[in-house]
Nucleic acid binder design. Structure first.
Lengths: 260, 260
DNA sequence: CCAAAGCAAGAGCAGTGCTCTCTTTTTGGT
DNA sequence: ACCAAAAAGAGAGCACTGCTCTTGCTTTGG
């Protein structure tokens, strides 16, 4: 339905896509600040003013790229989750987190575009909201499923946080306990702290084996929202695992006898 | 010693300072991307080329501002810590975290400069390292003190993280247990995830009472590095507080009868 | 079939970072 | 005290940017 409605209309969508592709190329190569309308037009063999027929301003082009980036990230996260759909909640959680990290490392400039400092004067229009929510919704969904399967413990909820937690829960997931939603939002932000520090080079000469460090950190994050390690999601029989006794949330179980 | 060594030399430092001040003004007003050498020069009544006698390029000016920003943030954090030096470790921790948040909210563009996406092509020179480390060192110090005072529990340390944790500990704090250092680094990154999300507007329409939300989140962060709530730092008697019994970590203490 | 709408091209404006040359001022050694 | 050398300011200019406006050409639809 959206195709074959005149040569001109088809050309328009094609050119629009070509512009975005070339812009994405420049974005990936040099970063958002060096993305130049003129350079894009030049590369496409058109004159710069012609480009304004497709995007009314440079910021509009950027906005389009932002939405695409959110969608690309969301898709990466969702497909990673799909592959881990049968695993226990903690593994689903870490799978999604690791997909986010992998995507960010593969597309640092696009990551910077959406989770780094907002571009110059610009503030994200509402049109970006749905695309931006995908990862968050995914994480909420994982915890919700675990909740139904009882594979979750309630995080602490101090009294003064209760009103705000209830507000957030009402907005984001009315079916879930406020303390879980609050912990979820915090974990969400913290996840992007971990990813951002790695992508933006803050871990340079601090963390070397960043993959295992990240993996551990997001596992702890999963625990912080209440996800347990050996939770049986109602009817998920596969994968032999030792019973949830013993090494539960080993706090002082720490050092393999090699104490400092 | 550094003063009164010729009128010219004094004028140079004065003008350098004036340039940085004006640049900081523009940075705060419009953001790093709109910081213009020409505009700074114009405002100072000089011609743009004259400015290059003081800063060889725009990036060098930015680097100077970055170092100043790190120092300003570090100072804010350190003075907040000084005021809480006698409190228990968790309070010291949250005091520093809240100072970081307050500084970031008061100087969003400078925060973006140092913890947002790195500017265009530029990568932070080594000269920024000492200034950049101040907050991290502060957090390490708090945990170290708690460690000496026994006010800390050991975070978990899975086997595969051990080598990296030992590496980090050797680099950052050879006197501290690896699992604590690893948790510290993670908490450090997560702190900036929380701050960044608030400063960059990601919490818009998600979290309303951001102060109490943040306060709770960083308290949990303190717990994640092992800091305990009612730890008596050797001799710190002051501040009557109700005994740690009762409403400890209320897990199922849930809904105030107003269930969903 | 032909007006209307969509599109490309070019010139032009105001702004940017940065370089180069020229003149003036200050400095420091003899 | 003098005078070459170093430092600083001023101005012109280059190559680039985002964006606008006018001028033609082409496709579209009543």
């Amino acid at each position: 339905m959206s195709t074959a409605r005149g040569a001109r209309a088809r050309a328009r969508t094609e050119i629009t896509a070509a512009i975005k592709d070339e812009a994405r190329r420049q974005l990936a190569a040099e970063g958002a600040a060096k993305l130049s309308l003129r350079a894009v037009a030049r590369e496409l063999g058109m004159v710069s003013s012609a480009l304004y027929r497709y995007f009314p301003s440079r910021d509009d082009l950027l906005t389009a790229l932002i939405i695409d980036a959110y969608d690309s990230l969301g898709e990466a996260a969702e497909s990673a989750h799909a592959k881990a759909a049968d695993a226990e909640p903690v593994r689903q959680w870490t799978a999604v987190c690791e997909a986010v990290r992998a995507w960010a490392l593969a597309h640092p400039h696009e990551y910077a575009l959406i989770y780094g400092s907002p571009v110059p004067g610009y503030s994200a229009p509402d049109s970006t909201v749905p695309a931006a929510s995908r990862v968050g919704l995914l994480l909420i969904g994982i915890v919700r499923d675990a909740l139904e399967g009882r594979g979750i413990a309630r995080p602490p909820l101090p009294a003064r946080l209760r009103p705000e937690a209830e507000r957030m829960a009402a907005d984001l997931a009315p079916d879930m306990p406020p303390e879980v939603v609050a912990a979820l939002v915090a974990a969400w932000a913290q996840l992007y702290g971990l990813v951002g520090f790695e992508v933006f080079g803050q871990f340079h000469r601090v963390v070397e084996d960043r993959a295992v460090f990240f993996s551990h950190a997001v596992t702890q994050l999963a625990h912080s929202v209440g996800l347990l390690n050996h939770a049986g999601t109602s009817g998920a029989p596969q994968e032999s695992r030792r019973p949830p006794r013993g090494r539960g949330r080993g706090t002082a179980s720490g050092g393999t006898r090699a104490g400092s």
